[in-house]
């Protein structure tokens, strides 16, 4: 089945490790995909004011592009893009008056009625590929690696676009288990990392992110796995600030779910782009011989 693929801006620069590992996994899993032509930034956050339709235009324009491509399903990797696009899609499906206003405003584009289905790759793996089929393709199981799956906010909230139960999700656990990893459950797995407050209130974002990492580490996690480049910034890159600021802070390897997938599928190490992760990530994987089975 052919799907359209929406990357998102950061996946073309800082989160190239998310994109490259995912695209390699698409191929390995036989997922035929095509990146949208002429896509624009979706806006990253969904507008929450009832009268604010101008901020719906960006995600809807992308949905129009997906419709033009003719694939019924549009797969996203970044969970913030997923949330924004999926919510805009719900609006275009169900809110007739707003839909008409947006379609009329975008008079240079064909009308859109919510025809495309927006899917996050994690749900796609579960529902379209299936855990059983995925397991059969695992070449180097992650045996022994203790992984704390971090959902963050936008995959689970609000309910109408949640890929799993907002308060007790299991999808990410199933994913890690399928790849042969040991799952470390931790209560903070659905707690916000501070998101865009990295910009508005960086100290507050740093503290909540530090608490999340501490929770995972205190339960024995070797690494944190996530789905979003902004979470990766707050929980990954900003560990340098944590190590300076908080006593007892530890360097925690952080990686994208698609990198984990690529490793388990035995894909080339190059597609994982570990140079974009904390250096502790590749060190950990090497020490567990998880990069050994990987084709160099």
């Amino acid at each position: 089945m052919k799907v359209s693929y929406y990357p998102g801006c950061t996946l073309k620069t800082r989160a190239k490790n998310l994109e490259d590992s995912a695209l390699a996994a698409f191929k390995a899993l036989g997922i035929e995909y095509q990146e949208l032509d002429r896509w624009n930034c979706c806006g990253a956050v969904f507008s929450l004011a009832d009268d604010d339709l101008i901020h719906m235009v960006a995600p809807v324009r992308d949905l129009v592009r997906a419709k033009q491509l003719g694939a019924g399903t549009m797969v996203t990797l970044c969970s913030m893009c997923y949330n924004t696009l999926a919510r805009a899609n719900e609006l275009m499906k169900h809110e007739e008056v707003k839909r008409k206003t947006i379609n009329d405003f975008m008079n240079e584009e064909p009308d859109y009625f919510g025809e495309v289905e927006v899917v996050h790759f994690l749900s796609y793996l579960k529902n379209q590929i299936g855990w059983g089929a995925l397991k059969s393709k695992v070449q180097s199981p992650l045996g022994g690696l203790k992984i704390a799956p971090y959902y963050g906010c936008t995959l689970l909230r609000p309910k109408d676009v949640a890929i799993d139960h907002p308060d007790s999700p299991t999808l990410f656990r199933e994913f890690v288990e399928t790849l042969g990893g040991e799952v470390i459950e931790f209560p903070s797995s659905t707690v916000c990392c501070g998101s865009y407050q990295a910009l508005g209130n960086p100290e507050a974002a740093l503290k909540v992110s530090f608490d999340i990492l501490s929770d995972a580490v205190s339960r024995g996690a070797d690494a944190l796995v996530l789905t979003c480049p902004l979470c990766d910034y707050n929980l990954g890159r900003r560990q340098d600030d944590m190590l300076r600021k908080y006593e007892g802070a530890k360097d925690v390897p952080v990686l994208y779910f698609t990198q984990l997938l690529a490793i388990a599928l035995g894909l080339s190490q190059e597609v994982c782009r570990f140079e974009l992760n904390r250096s502790s990530t590749a060190r950990l994987l090497k020490s567990r011989n998880l990069l050994a089975g990987v084709k160099a």
Binding site: C9, V45, M80, L199
Partner: peptide, 28 residues
């Protein structure tokens, strides 16, 4: 504005991923 893009330091902007700038500017 709550956050003033023109007053942000270049080092600060360069450190932030695009997704942070987009979402932060949208909200603030």
């Amino acid at each position: 504005n709550y956050v003033e893009p023109s007053n942000m330091q270049p080092e600060e902007i360069i450190d932030l991923p695009q997704i942070a700038l987009v979402s932060g500017f949208r909200k603030m």
